[in-house]
Design a protein around this nucleic acid. Structure first.
Lengths: 242, 242
DNA sequence: CGTAGACTTGACGGCACTCAAACAAGGTGG
DNA sequence: CCACCTTGTTTGAGTGCCGTCAAGTCTACG
């Protein structure tokens, strides 16, 4: 199979690609796989020989906290995200990649990525870029975690996901699917599930979102961003020559 | 000037380098600069044409929180860290790089880095690796922020810094200099300065550290790691062929 | 010896956590 | 078709970590 068109859009949003680069990108061979909620897509600590790209649904980077105190989720990934591309240079992950809801991914062999770094340096820099943007999102999560209260924190997560989904054409009309339980939102935001529930209710009461099950509808995009103090700058959505 | 030997050690800790790669690495030309406490080494949002490497002292990645509520620090960097290497592919930073205490850095032109990605793919992958390790540290900070109480959180920071300093030969004998005020520790850990002070006192009372001014002496390394639940795995200190 | 900046300590209040239980939705078997 | 169970969500009451306010101490330096 060929590489996800979501990822092609992800790159084209940020730089232009030469016909040669674009051709090589589309020529990457992949293996598809499908997962159910909670399935481990990539386990931690194992030596890796391939990396995975999100095709459909969402997945998370889940860290086990020593002392059996449950998990912490440090990233959410959507269609077009090259989820564990950093595994190509790190050789192993210090976290699991877990399916949120049902998902489909495709695997790309590291041998092929290595060949690309040898012969397509510009493409290689764009792959590097995608891991650098992941790092920028990690930093933003750190900033938000220590500067926003629960409601604004949750609002920021929703703003980020909706913006990212739109940027690859996977959402529109202020509506998207978030296959994440409140218990898992708690692992993402660093609160108890009960407190997450209060934050959800708060956003509902303020009439900023309609939220039933996994379906989220943003009712007041401007006000939601204002509450979250969201700015998409860190997502690096502008086009540059890299 | 040539590139910092701390960085050479940083890489050799994680992979072996061919004579050609090592030669090219040492041939990189740099420009030195010196900074005083609080100086901005690299400002946010500006178009970048070079990246900086830490030679001496420490610096931080400081984010301004919209709404004038002060700053959040998302990373600390030490000698041998290629601080804003991600700026090479991102083209601009969403945060400032600020000097903590007095520091010396050297700047490397992006043109030269680009040339390396064209002709030294293995070296390029190792540069990529260093940004991937930064991302792993961001993730670990997220994990620790949401799973440790103040004292353990602070203890984890000390464990990380001491381990990193030792890994490049910049510290030993359980002693190092941390040119970071308690007010700035508060920006790192996400607490108020007063609560940071309580955490410092707690570590002192438990006789885990001796801490006067900027000088820190670890009195009980085993117990400090146990309290912090520190494991160096995420620092990726093992040697692999990348 | 006086000032400035950093560190330290105490008192009090609020956001978020824990414990506990009720409610809703979906699936299963009688 | 409806008990019944499971899983997830919702709500309330009490606790504790951490924030805020305020003041006092220490050190460096002129």
């Amino acid at each position: 199979m060929a590489i996800s068109e979501f990822f092609v859009r992800y790159l084209l949003r940020r730089d232009s690609l030469s016909p040669a680069d674009l051709g090589r990108l589309r020529q990457i061979s992949t293996t598809q796989a499908h997962f159910l909620p909670g399935d481990i897509i990539v386990p931690h600590s194992e030596r890796l020989t391939r990396s995975c790209m999100m095709l459909r649904g969402m997945c998370a980077r889940a860290h086990h906290v020593p002392g059996g105190e449950g998990r912490v989720i440090t990233a959410l990934h959507i269609a077009g995200d090259f989820v564990d591309l950093h595994g190509f240079v790190m050789q192993r992950l210090e976290h699991d990649v877990v399916s949120m809801g049902a998902s489909s991914v495709e695997f790309i062999e590291h041998d092929e990525l290595r060949e690309i770094t040898e012969n397509y340096p510009h493409l290689a820099r764009l792959l590097w870029l995608s891991t650098a943007i992941d790092a920028a999102m990690h930093r933003q999560w750190l900033v938000v975690a220590s500067s926003r209260r629960a409601s604004a924190h949750l609002a920021h997560l929703i703003c980020e996901l909706y913006t990212r989904l739109c940027s690859v054409g996977a959402a529109e009309q202020f509506t998207f699917v978030l296959p994440v339980l409140q218990r898992q939102l708690a692992e993402i935001l660093g609160y108890s599930p009960i407190h997450v529930n209060r934050a959800v209710r708060d956003l509902r009461d303020r009439r900023l979102v309609r939220w039933s099950g996994a379906k989220i509808e943003i009712l007041d995009w401007e006000e939601l961003q204002r509450l979250a103090r969201f700015s998409a700058e860190y997502l690096d959505l502008d086009r540059f020559s890299r």
